[in-house]
């Protein structure tokens, strides 16, 4: 499951935002960056700048006043980006579910890739979540590269630029890839 060599080259930077949590998960994120658990050995760095980050760590069930900030930070991050919901209240509202100023989980506002359970999530679980997020990040960056690669191969083979055929073949290839993926998922 863990192929560390694969990740050693990469250095994902994380952005942390507190959307109304109780601080429990925030101090556990700090603890997982501190010596005992040391996420930094995977190259993970905590930045305060959304424009340089790849991984978005969110804690807390979105409160009314933090909604805009959350979406704003998400849109400012360059893709590919991965969102991790840390803690039970971030995933689904937790104990704050149905309170009047709470929006029951961040996936009502932004797409979430990894859900880390626990109240508060222990550093162990946060590391698991980040490792999982790195897998997804890898996959997402490959997906972004995909159309470019397909165009490149067609050009070499045919030597002539036929936009219609190219588009069709891209569609076919992406269908194939999707079919393969769904097979993998079923397995």
């Amino acid at each position: 499951m863990f192929d560390l060599k694969k990740y050693r080259k990469k250095s994902p930077w994380i952005l942390h935002y507190n959307a109304g949590s109780c601080n429990g998960c925030d101090i556990e994120i700090l603890a997982s960056l501190a010596p005992k658990y040391d996420l930094e050995r995977f190259g993970v760095l905590n930045t305060g700048n959304p424009k340089q980050s790849d991984v978005f760590l969110v804690t807390g069930p979105v409160t009314f006043r933090s909604r805009e900030r959350l979406v704003e930070l998400y849109t400012q991050m360059p893709s590919p980006k991965v969102v991790i919901a840390v803690g039970s209240c971030t995933c689904s509202g937790g104990v704050f579910r149905d309170m009047y100023n709470v929006e029951d989980g961040i996936d009502n506002y932004i797409p979430v890739d990894v859900y880390v359970p626990g109240c508060a999530s222990s550093p162990e679980l946060i590391i698991d979540g980040v490792v999982k997020a790195l897998e997804i990040l890898e996959q997402k960056s490959k997906e972004i590269e995909l159309p470019k690669k397909l165009f490149g191969t067609i050009k070499e083979e045919e030597g002539v630029l036929n936009l219609r055929e190219m588009a069709l073949s891209v569609a076919q290839k992406s269908e194939q890839i999707n079919a393969q993926k769904s097979e993998q998922n079923e397995n």
Binding site: N18, R65, S66, D98, M99, Y100, V102
Partner: peptide, 15 residues
């Protein structure tokens, strides 16, 4: 300071 207001005081008397 109102970014984290969740409404716990009310929930404790109604929920």
């Amino acid at each position: 300071v109102g970014f984290v207001h969740r409404g716990i005081e009310r929930a404790c008397t109604t929920k």
